[in-house]
Amino acid sequence: MISIRGLTKIYHTKLNQIKAVDDLDLDVKKGEIFGVIGYSGAGKSTFIRLMNRLENPTSGKIMIDEEEITALSKDQLRVSRQGIGMIFQHFNLLWSRTVHENIAFPLEIAGVPKAERIKRVDELIDLVGLSGRGDAYPSQLSGGQKQRVGIARALANNPKVLLCDEATSALDPETTDSILNLLVDINQKLGLTIILITHEMHVIRKICHRVAVMEAGKVVEQGDVLDVFLHPKLPVTKRFVEQVMGDREQDDALDKITQSYTTGKVVRLHFVGEITNQAIISTVAKQFDVQANILQGKITQTQKGAYGTLFVHFDGEESEIQKAIDFITSTSVKVEVGLHD
């Protein structure tokens, strides 16, 4: 659906030139929520602004739905932009217009007749859960409500793609979650392709199907969100995964925890995918003659199943513990056994 080839953006300053986006190749499938994550300065913001040519690329090609965005004239681009929705970190609503009028704005631009406009805006207000707030001004709304208006406005002309420029970065965690749920909801209801950029791995984890990690203008790692969570290759990706999982501390801890138990075994269980939903610990405790004591851990849900680790202390007969570990190994859960010195 979206294919990007050799996309490059160079900014010239007085002293030197900066490659904000450097020879970037990317493919996004239809109906997918694609996340781009990177620290500030990684070029992700420039990247998303190149997508609808708010910035013009220095070179490279962007195709959206068979249409070569990078080859369009100014007039063609204007029409094409009506099919690309965008939401922003700071919402960018017109404060002089009510919620209703803000959502109607892109429809006015597209030349939709007034009666139809009113009908469509009412639908959108319902869709984003702002019923009854149509006559409020943006200054009377909370941050989350403002972003809902932003989303409704971006969806007004039934776009093919929704670009999200740090859409939740200005919101508190709870509001972030409700906005992310709304995006997933829209993605499922309308089959809308969503490209979002963020610096929060939490956002990627919660709603994205696939993720690309950007560093210094390049995509350094990409893949299914679960894969990237499980096997982060580069240090930058590992750090992002740790944002959600806090893995590094636990890495240090496995052998340390083991030292504090003189009997039994401390194991680390890696959960991947749906198995997490089964009651594996209680099954083990029932089937084998072992005491299972959960020491610490973290399980998290992604769009394609759960991922996480648990530290469990098994106590009992050596042979029973081994049977229990063998049983867990036979499922999709990976087992790591802590060693005494």
Binding site: N52, L54, L77, R78, V79, S80, R81, Q82, I84, M86, F88, H90, N92, L93, L94, W95, S96, R97, F105, P106, E108, I109, A110, R153, N157
Partner: peptide, 24 residues
């Protein structure tokens, strides 16, 4: 940002002047 949002929606310069710049 508001002007940018309007151009991202495909607004003409005339629309930006009369519906964004002056009212805002």
């Amino acid at each position: 940002g508001v002007i940018e949002a309007a151009s991202a929606m495909g607004a003409k310069t005339r629309t930006i002047i009369f519906k964004v710049l002056l009212p805002e």
